[in-house]
Design a protein around this nucleic acid. Structure first.
Lengths: 366, 366
DNA sequence: AGGAACGTTGACAGCGCTACCAGCAGCGAC
DNA sequence: GTCGCTGCTGGTAGCGCTGTCAACGTTCCT
């Protein structure tokens, strides 16, 4: 016997086809590749579909075609501002086309990532966006065996699984430190939280730049595995200052920490940048508006997400980009907090003041 | 003829059933309702599934069962910090169970929301989370006709579609203004951006509180449709000050604006709170760490997302919550920026200082 | 004019799973 | 012993769509 079920009055493809006077398969093609139809049938199917308010059943499509139109995205955090920009780019790129985004949070655990990857892959996604280059061996093997395009985002490194978009955190950190040296600073501290692989590489970049100048000392580095926050920035800076009273600059692994350091300086009545210079990382919006305005390393997060999704979609549709690895670079945005020109006391007036001096560098060249 | 296709060596349910020595339908039941099986078969199917590494094909399941295990989420913005907290709650709640989250961004457009709603509903989601209570009539009708549970989040109001979780933005704004009155402020400005319905209700609350005290004047209100930012806070405050030089407090519709106002005060050498008090809205993390620490209205965003998803899942599984409308309330977190006790100049030491005085109110009582 | 090539269309047979119903065993009640 | 109940299991028949291939009409080439 057949079944009753809800019926639900749902319009099926066959009904559209009937109204349009074509076979179901022709109607089906209309939705997937309209150019394959003659103009006459195309318009007939189109108006029939509109008249009936037809919406394709994605589950049936996925079952029959053995593939989904889902782009899986694995990111390590939903809290972090950085990822919300990337995500926004990804969602924006997915808008207006057939693909939908399936998001999962690895919580900075590569084991969790491996588990989620297995889950995702089982559903045959159309493509995958994964964060970073530090997958487990197992994950790496699964990614390589996957029969869908894959983009690694947030950083670039050797040996991409497939496509890759990001920048060199190592080089970016070196550039930030170089900027501080240029401004005449020598005892430059490093403040970092969470210490995920990308923050770790920023630390590596800092260390190498400091060693190049023969200025590195272990006690200039304060890090913690704790998730980042503004408050934490103040606390870590407090530690750093206790260890190294002669500190004359701080390079913060992100902007929240930098803001925390700025507030802590204000609390302690330490003049920024005259006594201590501050450089952040990511160039979040508030950096330009703080007092003093805060120097940061600008990273193209939104563009990264958007381009990653676009590259992926192109690849899904068979048009592999000629550039599978894209270095988006970074820019050191110099502002008052690290400027050796003594911060003029600016009177009334809003905004960030003078145009930012930008130091742009493509990463990957040391 | 049959077809070739990739084959892909995928394990099907039938293979698990065969290995376990049961019928496919019994194996199917194991994955959906293990309690319905005898212990013997249960363990047999379980080990067979594990041995073969079986993962169910969700598309086939959705097609056969006429429903998905997808929770649709419609939010107006991915940029706004507020929503990232809510989302984090939703994703956390969806972890470890069968449901997956399908997210879409309405960009604060109720027309876009309507379009997305139509799209979502066509895929028969297991449940839906929508933001706010200001849907189009068409959207409203679709929601009411939908045969799945629905939660409206972010605010509470009369006449819920189904379930609802949030708080009264109107009451929260009134409480913030009342707090400023208590601290002796009279000429209290309002700064708002974006002016989505919830911000509008905060403005309404502000206006009503000011009128109650016979202190309302239109020129105390500065708003814009522009998306919010820290920089914008400074700009709007500049406008406000130009209109009303006697200003003695500002109620900001969100914390980014409040931070912008604080920076602008610093830039203009206006003492906070002595000359001007500042109150924000949402109580983002940085508020407790700013100098001076910033008063704000705490809202339970993470909890809201998490509880909304949990309520939804309960309802999907047939256990409707006894409380379909949940008021999560708010708290005015009083900090230095609005304290009439003159801000003692605190010497070295990090953090927010003395315990926050909290003024807790369940919203819904005026 | 004949044939190849192309563009367009349709028939068929599932994709992998589950709703529905029927059946069977085991048990207690009469 | 028979009935009805409950608990478990299985057979059948699709869910709505698309991959494959075949077939058609038309155009273009030789």
């Amino acid at each position: 016997m057949g079944r009753k079920r809800t019926k639900s009055g749902k319009i099926r493809l066959a009904e559209v086809a009937e109204l349009a006077g074509v076979s179901p398969i022709t109607a089906s093609r209309f939705f997937r590749n309209p150019e394959a139809l003659s103009i006459a049938k195309r318009t007939r199917v189109e108006s029939a579909a509109k008249e009936l308010g037809y919406v394709p059943n994605l589950a049936a499509r996925a079952l029959a075609s053995q593939r989904t139109e889902v782009i899986g995205v694995l990111i390590p955090s939903l809290t972090n501002n950085v990822f919300s920009d990337v995500l926004r780019g990804i969602y924006d790129a997915s808008e207006g086309n057939r693909y939908s985004i399936q998001l999962s949070n690895t919580r900075y655990s590569i084991l969790q990532e491996e588990k989620l990857l297995r889950l995702f892959l089982a559903q045959k996604p159309a493509g995958l966006i994964v964060t970073g280059i530090d997958q487990t061996a197992e994950s790496r093997a699964m990614l390589e065996a996957a029969d869908c395009p894959i983009v690694q985002i947030m950083e670039i490194g050797p040996d991409p699984v497939d496509m890759m978009i990001g920048f060199s955190h190592y080089d970016a950190a070196r550039a930030a430190v170089a900027h501080l040296f240029e401004q005449g600073h020598r005892r430059i501290g490093f403040v970092g939280a969470r210490m995920d692989p990308r923050v770790q590489r920023r630390l590596d970049g800092y260390v190498s730049a400091m060693k190049d100048a023969a200025m590195f000392e272990q006690r200039l580095v304060v890090t913690t595995a704790t998730p980042t926050s503004v408050t934490l920035g103040g606390a870590l800076f407090t530690d750093l200052l206790a260890r190294e009273p002669d500190l004359d600059a701080v390079f913060c692994a992100n902007d929240d920490l930098a803001l925390g350091v700025l507030f802590e300086c204000r609390r302690r009545e330490i003049a920024v940048p005259d006594q201590i210079a501050i450089v952040g990382f990511n160039d979040l919006e508030f950096m330009a508006s703080a007092v003093p305005t805060l120097t940061s390393v600008r990273t193209n997060r939104y563009e990264m997400g958007k381009t990653a999704a676009n590259m992926l979609i192109e690849a899904i549709e068979g048009r592999r980009p000629e550039q599978p690895v894209l270095d988006l670079g970074f820019k050191v945005i110099e502002r008052q907090s690290s400027s050796s020109r003594h911060s003029e006391s600016r009177p009334a007036g809003s905004g960030a003041g003078a145009a930012n001096k930008m130091v742009a560098l493509p990463s990957g060249h040391d």
